[in-house]
Amino acid sequence: MKNRRINLYLIGSILALSVLPLLASYVLLDEVLQSATSMITKEQTQTILQNYRDDLKLLKTLDPDKAEVYKSRFLQTSDELIVYEKPGLLQQVLRDTYLTYYLVLFVLVLIVSLVAAVWLSQNVARSYKTLLNSDLKKAEKLQSLSHFNEWQTIAGKLAHEINNPLTPIEMMVSNLNRVYLNADPKSFKDNLNETTSVVSEEVYKLKEMVSHFSQFAKLPEPVLKEANIAEYCERFITQHQNGWPVVKFTVLIENDVKNLNVKMDHLLINQCLINIINNAVQANPTKGTLQISMSLKRENSAEISMVLFNDGVKIDNETRKHIFKMHYSSKKSAENMGLGLAIVKKILLDHNGDIICLLLDKGAAFKINLPISERLND
């Protein structure tokens, strides 16, 4: 939030709290004046004053010596009678007086409110900016620490995986030297063949592992092209279903998706789907036939969702929290580095999309969201 917006909010709030009571009292002014005058201008009081004025006229005649005193009282009583005989005049006098003080008070409140609002807004804006900068610095530190921890974990895992094949290689080479010195040529030849076989196998594992990391490090930037997503999914299953003999595929496409386009890199999206299906097959090695369904529907006005469901083992909630991390894998093998789904996540983010693992009671499912590009002409 910008400082200017904070200032406007504070000034508006303080002015509203200050001015609203004054405006309310102004609106109720007529009712207040009518109530006040009705309490003062009673008919009984008016009759008493009129009788008193008549008495003063009579006394002036009967007692000429005090004529001036009676005259003064007569005039004063006449003025008071005007108030009772013309209550509207009283209301006008009170209104004028009230408005004079009201305007003075209103201006003072307005000035004080503006000064207070400006002062408070500057302090709040300064405090907000300080807090925001502090939070940004903390977030940057946490992100840096997170990256360090991530790469430390990867480096440790990589070192561990490299060390695993080096140990048998070291042992076999050391043993080969001992056999050469103490055994006959035939035994040495047999041991040499065994050593060659073990070293070749472990070197192959190292190459596979390095290949996985290289694949992740060298992911190309997507070359996005318009594609009908429904046609793409049907074509993908047709082209790749023979690659997984144990899988039975089903494609479900809703009608409102059949004419929608997305911008995608075919090769990279192929890689995403292949990685997800391979993971499903590897997670269910003992299942005779694995049912995998691919469902397409319109998620909202801007996105299409593709759900890949298989009826294999369930993915628990704890695994879901870490499943897209690039060093996480639930499969324990030297060849598996936990990069398959991390690659999928990276590719889909580059497509301005995303992927989540759904929590199900049975089976496993991944939902891919891709932004809609345009609707094709029917």
Rank of each mutant, 00 (worst) to 15 (best):
G338C: 05
I82Q: 07
H266F: 05
K2R: 13
K189M: 09
L114V: 10
G340N: 03
V69C: 01
R178E: 09
N191L: 10
S174Y: 07
R126Y: 05
N133G: 15
Y84L: 13
K225A: 13
A334Q: 11
E150H: 15
Y101W: 11
N175E: 06
E208G: 12
E140A: 14
E161S: 14
Q152R: 13
P285A: 06
L29I: 10
N300F: 10
K141P: 00
A117D: 00
S174D: 07
L59V: 04
E201R: 15
L308H: 01
A227T: 08
K205V: 12
N164R: 13
S127E: 02
L132F: 06
A155F: 10
M171S: 11
E201W: 04
A155S: 14
F236T: 05
Q282I: 07
V93F: 09
L359D: 13
V115H: 03
S174M: 06
F74S: 14
E201M: 14
E68G: 06
L166Q: 11
H147G: 04
M39Q: 15
T153D: 06
H147Y: 11
I355Y: 03
V104W: 07
L81N: 02
G312E: 02
A36T: 12
L339S: 02
A36H: 05
K321G: 08
D311F: 06
P220C: 12
Q241F: 08
G156L: 11
R53E: 14
L166C: 06
I343M: 12
Q76V: 13
V107L: 14
I368A: 10
V32C: 12
I315Q: 05
S330E: 05
L358K: 13
V247H: 00
A139Y: 07
L105Y: 11
L49W: 11
F148K: 15
S25K: 04
D316F: 03
A227D: 03
A117F: 08
Y70I: 07
V247R: 00
Y84P: 05
L339Y: 02
V344W: 00
M306A: 08
A159M: 11
M171N: 13
W119P: 02
F148Y: 10
I154D: 08
I292W: 00
A16Y: 10
L341M: 06
H160P: 00
Y328E: 08
S113V: 03
N369L: 13
L219H: 06
E221H: 13
I292F: 05
Q122C: 03
P245L: 01
I356C: 04
L260S: 07
N259Q: 12
N310C: 11
S187R: 12
T45G: 02
